[in-house]
Write a protein that binds this DNA or RNA. Structure first.
Length: 827
DNA sequence: GGGTGGCATCTTTTT
DNA sequence: GATGCCACCC
């Protein structure tokens, strides 16, 4: 099973062969006027033909600063990609002069794929597209010497930085209990994100924790530099330093990237804002897209003020609003509006949709988190069977990763395939980090943090005492830890520890030499074998150890793949890129599985059916965030993001008690629930699922909808209301059934097709038995139309010959068609 | 020096 | 319920 995908979009260092030759002459600093225009055959008009007026305006406003305020589901990515294609098709610029920055690899990949579809492989390859971190990591690799780094620098993730911090605190005798390395790291990270240096930070600190952080900050920076390492924040900060100190280098990149695009601009921090300004200073062609209402990353330095004040920063900027929502039903969108209007500071937007009203949004009350998960799981199977939906139409979103557990359990028990995004991901596993530390040391011997990590793993008799002596000796002599290894005896280390150190050093040094002439993956494998990593797993001889061994094997295979994939790739580039991968980048979304993930991870995605779980005080919003208005507003935006992921159906769930800190704690319904537009809501009873008679049996047996007494909170109606069971179903369904699990989904589905269920509020749902082609013509299905091309079914109204189907076509927008004549092919 | 077991302490969200 | 830390023993 592949856990790992390294097919990142190319950045600036993956030039076209002809460009490379040109670069060799010009130093890469020119725009290659001598190259033929490869895109002359593209029809610029056709590229923007399918866009709505606002999208079209945004896609064709090429010069100067452009601010696109894009509501959720407004075709933002599409607009951006068509704009890039339009730029190329008009001959305005060349692929290699275009830069597009995103926040996730996934977004970059999607954009890359869409652009490729519009302009072809060759042109798409030339465009620099990627996350801020990955694009600037590559810039820094090219320009490392200018800022006193060697190009094979290590990139430290949060965990690495924290370990480094812990070591520093030990040395400076700062009590790691009162001030955790974690807090210290995070304080320093915030300072770096705000572009506050160690000196300045020392002046402006207030409070004990910050004073300690101020002591650590310069030491931390020194340690990073000595290790030839950068943390995540440095990848954004160092380019600024580079550009400030070397105007010629800045000029080179200004000329290289004449059209700069930034997606999710509301998530930029001060460093990202600054680097964008610097790049755009020469030509002013900066196009940013974002939605202030979806800013959910303040905790990592995102400054919503960047988008709010874009107009002030770029006075000639054009502002374009994308306000039509193509994603969600009317009710879901109204619910979203009712949430976001509670926030004070935001740009004005009037979201609207042509989509049908859709179903109500259901509120499910559960007894416990286990009950909550079970209710969600039942509802998934229910909808899956009634509507014949694939599992991939469903997503369960929650506030914290810890909540995934109960859902995983429920899905497993029910035999529902799921994929979990986030949590402990491949590259953060201990065995992977250990293996990576070995490999890093190979290309960057100064990397003291990696050295410390593995010097005694697997255990080889080098304890704290020896390491302390070695470190003290290195310090005193001004040596790196690596070089001090050669002088173990002088450092006062004797006996077994000394022998081990020598063997360790010899192994690494010889493999580092081998790297120059041999296949990197082979060297990596023999290094890890020689270090005893695999022996360690074998002796443990448990399934877990077996899995760990396989993971390390897989890492080595990924390295081999990376190197085979193109020129200029090495162990060093592999290590730099691998650190920037997120778990979300490693899972493939083509599988037919229910998705479980945090609300944060869901940004930018959409699903036909969405569950938002755990709407309880102190969980969502989190207790910490609820302390001030700003925190609550950010949580509210997060809720808004979650709600607007849903295309057709949305469920909000909360439990009356939740397992926390090892015991059950009573839980109170979230304040957000009290703010919702009750018009679009339906509440469901809070009885525990187990204690009720089987819902389906009852509705099959009785034929009559059950109604509960209205509650003070609004309409409290049983889920089954109005859904008079189909005749076919009832006849086929013996009343004696006790378990939902016994139902044959295929049978169930066929009978559903034969007779339509009657929807509440006069909405009818037609049987889905008219399509030509293999698939199921249901909302969410991909279809092809002879003239309009590819599209997605939004909904079907009416019956038989009268049925109308509304389809959102990728290029022709939303159309309502007579099902009888549409001749749709289901994909 | 290294391994084990008991005890406290947590839990946001991520490039 | 998981992880990390510390004390204790080999």
């Amino acid at each position: 099973m592949r856990q790992f995908s390294l097919d990142l979009p190319p950045a600036d260092d993956a030039p076209h062969p002809a460009d490379a030759a040109h670069d060799a002459r010009t130093g890469g600093s020119e725009t290659r006027p001598d190259r033929p225009r490869p895109l002359a055959q593209l029809d610029a008009e056709a590229i923007v033909a399918g866009l709505n007026p606002a999208q079209r305006e945004a896609a064709t406003a090429l010069d100067g600063a452009v601010l696109i305020i894009a509501g959720p589901g407004s075709g933002k990515t599409r607009t951006l990609t068509h704009r890039i294609a339009y730029l190329l098709a008009t001959g305005r610029t060349r692929p290699w002069n275009v830069l597009a920055l995103t926040f996730t690899n996934k977004a970059a990949r999607e954009m890359q794929a869409r652009v490729r579809a519009l302009v072809g492989d060759e042109a798409a390859r030339g465009i620099a597209m990627g996350t801020f971190h990955s694009v600037f990591a590559r810039v820094l690799r090219s320009e490392a010497e200018a800022i006193g780094y060697s190009k094979d620098f290590s990139i430290y993730d949060t965990d690495d930085s924290e370990r480094l911090m812990r070591a520093l605190m030990e040395r400076l005798k700062i009590d790691a209990k009162t001030y955790t390395p974690r807090t210290m790291r995070s304080l320093i990270s915030s300072a770096k994100n705000a572009m506050v240096g160690p000196m300045e930070y020392g002046r402006i600190t207030k409070g004990d924790a910050q004073d300690k952080a101020a002591m650590l900050y310069p030491e931390y920076e020194k340690a990073l530099r000595a290790a030839n390492a950068m943390d995540f924040d440095d990848l954004l900060l160092k380019p600024i330093v580079l550009f400030e100190q070397h105007p010629d280098v800045l000029k080179k990149y200004q000329q290289k990237w004449q059209y700069v695009h930034i997606d999710e601009y509301q998530d930029t921090n001060k460093a990202q804002y600054t680097v964008a300004r610097m790049l755009a200073a020469a030509h002013g062609n900066l196009c940013v897209v974002g939605d202030d209402a979806q800013s959910i990353y303040a905790f990592r330095g995102a400054d919503i003020g960047n988008i709010l004040s874009f107009q002030r920063d770029y006075p000639n900027a054009r502002t374009i609003r994308l306000e039509q929502n193509y994603r969600s039903t009317g009710r879901i969108l109204r619910l979203a509006q009712s949430i976001i209007t509670r926030n004070k500071e935001q740009l004005k937007k009037d979201l609207w949709t042509d989509n049908r009203e859709g179903d109500f949004v259901y509120v499910l009350e559960a007894q416990s988190e286990r009950d909550e998960a079970m209710k969600v799981e039942r509802r998934i199977r229910d909808i899956q069977m009634r509507e014949g939906r694939p599992y991939k139409h469903f997503a369960v979103l929650y506030r914290t990763n810890a909540q995934s557990r109960s859902f995983e359990d429920a899905m497993r028990r029910a035999g529902i395939p799921y994929r979990l995004v986030g949590g402990v991901s491949f590259y953060t596993r201990k065995e992977i980090k250990d293996a990576l530390a070995y490999l890093r040391l190979l290309v960057n011997p100064n990397d003291a943090a990696s050295l410390r990590r593995i010097i005694n793993y697997p255990a080889r008799g080098i304890g704290d005492t020896s390491l302390d002596r070695l470190a003290a000796y290195a310090d005193a002599k001004g040596l790196s830890l690596w070089h001090a290894l050669d002088e173990a005896a002088e450092a006062g280390i004797t006996g077994r520890a000394k022998t081990s150190l020598e063997k360790f050093k010899f192994l690494l040094a010889s493999k580092a030499v081998a790297l120059a002439s041999q296949d990197a993956a082979e060297v990596a494998r023999t290094l890890l074998e020689g270090a005893g990593l695999f022996t360690e797993f074998r002796t443990e001889n448990t399934p877990e150890a077996q899995a760990r061994a396989e993971n390390v094997e897989e890492l080595v295979s990924a390295l081999a793949e990376h190197i085979a994939a193109g020129e200029g790739r090495s162990l060093a580039t592999f290590l730099q890129e691998v650190t920037l991968l997120t778990d979300a980048d490693t899972t493939e979304d083509t599988d037919n599985k229910v998705t479980l993930m945090t609300l944060h991870a869901s940004k930018g995605l959409e699903f036909p059916v969405v569950f938002i779980a755990g709407l309880e005080e102190n969980l969502f919003p989190m207790a910490k965030a609820a302390q001030d208005a700003k925190g609550v507003e950010e949580e509210r935006r997060l809720f808004y993001v979650g709600v607007t992921r849903a295309e057709e159906r949305l469920f909000l769930t909360h439990a009356k008690s939740r397992f926390r800190y090892g015991k059950d704690e009573p839980a109170v319904r979230s304040r957000f629930m009290e703010e919702l537009d009750e018009e679009v809501l339906r509440h469901e009873s809070g009885e525990a699922f187990q204690s009720r008679p089987d819902r389906f049996q009852r509705s099959f047996g009785e034929m009559t909808p059950t109604r509960k007494a209205p509650s003070p909170t609004g309409r409290r109606i049983e889920y089954d209301e109005g859904e008079t069971p189909a005749r076919g179903r009832q006849a086929a369904k013996p009343t004696g059934r006790t378990s939902y699990d016994d139902l044959d989904p295929h049978y169930f589905r066929q009978s559903l097709r034969a007779t339509p269920a009657i929807r509440p509020r006069g909405e009818t749902r037609v049987e889905y038995d008219v399509p030509s082609g293999g698939g199921e013509l249901a909302p969410g299905a991909r279809v092809r139309h002879a003239t309009f091309g590819l599209g997605k079914v939004l909904g079907i109204e009416g019956r038989g010959d009268q049925a109308n189907i509304s389809v959102h076509f990728d290029d022709a927008g939303t159309k309502k068609l007579k099902l009888r004549f549409a001749k749709l092919e289901v994909l």
